[in-house]
């Protein structure tokens, strides 16, 4: 703290020996302890995002290295927020379920408050969004993504070495977009499937994140386009979710009384079979025969005492 104030107040580079003399808490230390403490404090400031510059005041003696912090690099830029914007920021600080990230967001908001932004909590009373981060590997991958540090982890039983590019949160799950070093191409990873905490295999900032079309990459997470069709009998007034996706058709087949006939398109057979089964007697498959057989087999398994 005192080091930060000292370097911030300095108009020129301050040499280490001067720092040791003037900074409270440094001058009583032994040489070795001072070196250690000074290096640690300096690294901490840099990790906080405070750029500690090194340089020399004297062009003739460039070896006399000193340190300083530029005020414009140190201070949060002054930003004006409207009351609506402020309210949104206030709400944002309550969103994280993960304690570590919640702390980060709260401190960020406290910094805004320190510069005179005061959210009115009542304004967005009707909203309570939240983001979870229960994945065991979340913290290590999040930190590596922020610091651009290459990592390795086990994924679907295989070791991976990757350079994290970006993360996304979709329907309650975190994903990592990263360059797979062994395959030399970008890959999408579901963080929940990463075996355990990721391990660093390189220094922070040791690779560049290219300009990628993130939207397009995340697009691969969207459900596959439907490319097959099934004809269903749906009991009247039931299964509105399937009805919405279907269109009425006519069939030669016999249809149970009280059922409408709809054609519904789907992308993955396994998902469709599960979905149809979940509706029990409200939805029956009329065609094609393989889907019908699959549904019957699943229903028999559920009905047949196993369990």
């Amino acid at each position: 703290m005192n080091l930060a104030i000292c370097l911030l107040m300095a108009r020129r580079f301050i040499e280490k020996s001067q720092i040791r003399q003037v900074v409270e808490g440094y001058h009583d230390l032994s040489d070795a302890a001072f070196e250690r403490t000074f290096e640690r404090d300096k690294d901490e400031l840099r990790a906080m995002g405070v750029p500690v510059e090194t340089g020399s005041n004297n062009p003739l003696f460039p070896d006399e290295v000193g340190y300083r912090i530029r005020r414009k690099d140190f201070e949060l830029p002054a930003i004006e927020f409207t009351p609506a914007e402020t309210a949104a920021l206030g709400l944002a600080a309550t969103v994280w379920e993960s304690a570590t990230q919640a702390e980060q967001a709260v401190t960020a908001l406290a910094k805004l408050r320190a510069s005179g932004v005061d959210p009115d909590p009542a304004r967005l009373d009707a909203l309570a969004p939240s983001i979870g981060a229960r994945e065991p590997a979340f913290a290590s991958i999040w930190a590596a993504t922020i610091e651009r540090a290459p990592i390795r982890f086990g994924y679907k039983g295989r070791p991976r070495r990757v350079e994290p590019w970006a993360m996304t949160y979709r329907r309650g799950a975190w994903y990592l977009l990263a360059r797979d070093r062994d395959k030399a191409e970008p890959r999408m990873f579901k963080v929940a499937r990463v075996d355990a905490a990721a391990e660093r295999i390189g220094r922070p900032g040791s690779y560049a994140v290219p300009e990628v079309d993130l939207e397009a990459s995340w697009g691969s997470l969207e459900p596959k386009q439907p490319d097959a069709e099934v004809v269903l009998g749906i009991r009247q007034g039931r299964a509105p979710d399937l009805r919405r996706r279907g269109r009425p058709v006519s069939t030669q087949q016999e249809v149970p009384a009280g059922y409408d006939v709809l054609a519904v398109s789907y992308a993955r057979a396994g998902d469709l079979v599960g979905e149809v089964c979940a509706h029990g007697a409200d939805v029956v498959v009329l065609a094609p025969a393989p889907v019908r057989r699959a549904v019957l087999a699943e229903l028999r398994a559920t009905a047949g005492g196993r369990p």
């Binding site: 930060a4 201070e75 949060l76 002054a78 944002a92 960020a108 983001i131 999040w142």
Partner: peptide
């Protein structure tokens, strides 16, 4: 001499931006 807060750390900035995006959703 310390009348302005220090900048966001990268983690703080990202945590608050992500949270705000969740509000937007």
């Amino acid at each position: 001499y310390l009348s302005r807060p220090v900048r966001f750390t990268p983690d703080e900035a990202m945590s608050l931006v992500v949270a705000l995006r969740a509000v937007r959703e």
